[in-house]
C-alpha cells in the first residue's frame, strides 16, 4: 500500500492563500475572461436588444405614452405592417434601387477594371483616382451630391448649353421630380461604390494566368472568344463576390436618402431602411417598427443565406482548382 507522505510543502499549501492560488492556477477564471468579454459584448449589444425588439414587436405601445400602459397584443403589429402598402412599396423600391445600382456598379466597375488592367503607363494613377470615392465618408458624399443637384448647382451649370438650346428652364430641380430623385440617389450610390466593384474586378483581372490567355490566342481565339470563353469564366468568383457584397450593402441604402431627399418627393425615394427609421424615430411607432424590422430581418436572412451559399460554392470551386 502506497501511503502518501505529508511534506512541509504540503502543510504550507493548506493555508487559505495557498489554496486560493492553487485554485487560481487552474485557470478557472482566466480562461473565461476572453469568452466573457466577447460573448458579453455580443449579448449586450446584439442578443438583449434583439430579444427586446421581439418582445416590443408584440406590444401595443407608442413611445409618446408611458411604457406602463403598454400591453401584449399578439400579432396585431405584424398584421398592420403586412397590410401597410407603404411597407411593401418601400421594400419594392429598395430592390429597385439596389438592383439598378448594383447592376450598373458591376458593369461600370467591370469595364473600368478591364481598361485599367490593359493600361501599362500611369496605371497606379488611374487606380488611385478610381478608388477615391470609396474612401469618402458616405455622409460627405451625400452632402456633395446635395450641392451638385441644387437648382443653381454645378450639374445644371454643366447642362446649361443643352437646356438653353432646347429652351428648357435651366434650373432643373432634380430632387423634386420623383423619377429624377430616385435616379439621383441611385447615381450617388453608383458614384461611391463603383470603386469597390472596380477593385474586386481589378484584382480578378490581375489574377488571370497570362499563359491561359496566350494558349487561347495561339489556338486562334479572337479577342472576344478569349474574353467570353477564358477570361469571363475565370472571373466568375470575383463577379459573385462583387454581387453578394454590393447587394448586401445596397439593400441597407439610407445615407444618400436622408441627406438628399428625406424620402421625398412624397414617398418616392423611401427605402425599407428609411421606412423603418421613419416609423420608429419620426412617428414614435416603436412596436410597429419592431415588428417591421423583424419581418425585414427574416426576409434579408434568406437573402444573406443565399449569398453565403453562393460565396461558399465559389470558394470550393477555387479550392478544387476549377477556376
Amino acid at each position: 500500500m502506497n501511503e502518501r507522505v505529508t511534506t512541509v510543502a504540503d502543510l504550507r499549501k493548506d493555508g487559505i492563500t495557498a489554496r486560493f492560488s492553487a485554485w487560481l492556477s487552474q485557470e478557472r477564471i482566466f480562461r473565461w475572461i476572453p469568452f466573457v468579454m466577447v460573448e458579453g459584448m455580443i449579448i449586450c449589444v446584439l442578443i438583449i436588444p434583439f430579444i427586446l425588439t421581439i418582445y416590443i414587436s408584440f406590444l401595443r405601445w407608442r413611445a409618446n405614452r408611458p411604457f406602463e400602459q403598454a400591453y401584449l397584443d399578439g400579432f396585431r403589429n405584424y398584421e398592420a405592417v403586412l397590410s401597410d402598402p407603404g411597407f411593401w412599396l418601400s421594400l419594392g423600391r429598395t430592390f429597385y434601387f439596389a438592383g439598378s445600382a448594383v447592376i450598373l456598379e458591376l458593369i461600370i466597375g467591370f469595364i473600368l477594371a478591364m481598361l485599367v488592367h490593359r493600361i501599362v503607363a500611369g496605371r497606379r494613377i488611374y487606380i488611385t483616382i478610381f478608388l477615391i470615392p470609396m474612401m469618402v465618408v458616405p455622409v460627405v458624399a451625400g452632402y456633395n451630391f446635395s450641392m451638385i443637384y441644387l437648382d443653381s448647382g454645378p450639374l445644371n451649370e454643366l447642362l446649361w448649353p443643352l437646356t438653353s438650346l432646347l429652351g428648357i428652364n435651366p434650373r432643373i430641380r432634380w430632387l423634386s421630380n420623383p423619377l429624377a430623385a430616385q435616379w439621383a440617389i441611385i447615381l450617388a450610390d453608383i458614384w461611391q461604390w463603383t470603386s469597390l466593384t472596380f477593385l474586386i474586378f481589378l484584382s480578378g483581372f490581375s489574377a488571370l494566368p497570362p499563359q491561359l490567355i496566350n494558349a487561347a490566342r495561339i489556338m486562334g481565339a479572337s479577342r472576344a472568344q478569349v474574353f467570353l470563353w477564358v477570361e469571363l469564366p475565370l472571373l466568375k468568383p470575383a463577379i459573385v463576390i462583387a454581387i453578394v457584397i454590393r447587394s448586401m450593402e445596397a439593400l441597407k441604402m439610407f445615407d444618400p436618402i436622408i441627406l438628399l431627399t428625406y424620402g421625398g418627393p412624397g414617398t418616392s425615394t423611401q427605402t425599407i431602411a428609411y421606412y423603418l427609421w421613419e416609423q420608429v424615430w419620426q412617428f414614435n411607432k416603436f412596436a410597429y417598427g419592431a415588428a417591421a424590422s423583424i419581418l425585414v430581418l427574416i426576409l434579408f436572412s434568406v437573402l444573406i443565406f443565399v449569398g453565403i451559399y453562393l460565396l461558399g460554392r465559389q470558394s470550393e470551386a477555387v479550392e478544387r482548382g476549377e477556376v
Binding site: Q211, L212, N214, A215, I218, M219, P233, E322, V323
Partner: peptide, 13 residues
C-alpha cells in the same frame, strides 16, 4: 502553330 506551355496552361474551368 501549336504550342505546349511550361505549366501546360490547361483551362481549369
Amino acid at each position: 502553330l501549336g504550342m505546349v506551355f511550361q505549366d501546360l496552361a490547361l483551362f481549369p474551368h
